[in-house]
Amino acid sequence: MFRDFGWQDLVPLAEGAWLTIQLCAVSGILGVIFGLVLGIARTSPSRIARWISTIYISCVRGIPVLVIIFFVFFGIPLLFPGLEPDKFSSAVIALTCFAAAYVAEIVRGSIEAVAKGQSEAADALGLNYWRKLRYVILPQAVKIMVPPGIGFLIGLVKDSSLVTVTGLLELTHAGNVVTNLTGDPIKTFLVVAAMYFVICYGISLLGRLYEKRTGVHVDPLKLPEPAGV
């Protein structure tokens, strides 16, 4: 009843890989946007902003990704009757919620890693909070965020395999389907693993390219320190 694992099986796997890439790209981008907002709120002078973002971040970080995925997938149609997001949208929502919290912590860490003297110098020049953030703090913080951010995106790709439980035909789920057809989990999942590896390695290459381009070999502790002293 099984057929041998063959070239034709690469097609659904490649389609799964493409879906995984789309899923991670969309939720990664949204996660970075919301993560930036949350991370800035986390370090803002407004107590309410800090409070809200801290609660959100602690909650999400304290919940397994799989539970977030189930919650979004089953919960949204129940909480908002009439709203029935498709599997892809559910997965994007779940992964975005998850990513935003972790990105926010990276953003907060990077903002705090910019030397205190930078903030004081901006204050002393009369820059208000937003201008200080825009022209002094964030340009330096972004360079610090890139390496851990890339690391997190790679993690996101791997964690995205969990959305297989919703039946979305991403890479892991495609692997399952092909295994059921061929009865050959070893070959199938070796290919699946190789595809994940290629995606992740591609991201880390992009990160390295960015670091080379900007000349940042990020050493957050050394960056703000004046040279030549």
């Binding site: 930078q118 004081e120 110098a121 002393a124 020049l125 340009p139 330096q140 004046p226």
Partner: peptide, 17 residues
């Protein structure tokens, strides 16, 4: 006030970027 009172720091605090 800060626009009227310029400040110079021990560690310069120039913006490195």
């Amino acid at each position: 006030v800060r626009q009227e009172a310029g400040m110079v720091f021990q560690h310069f605090n120039l913006f490195p970027h």
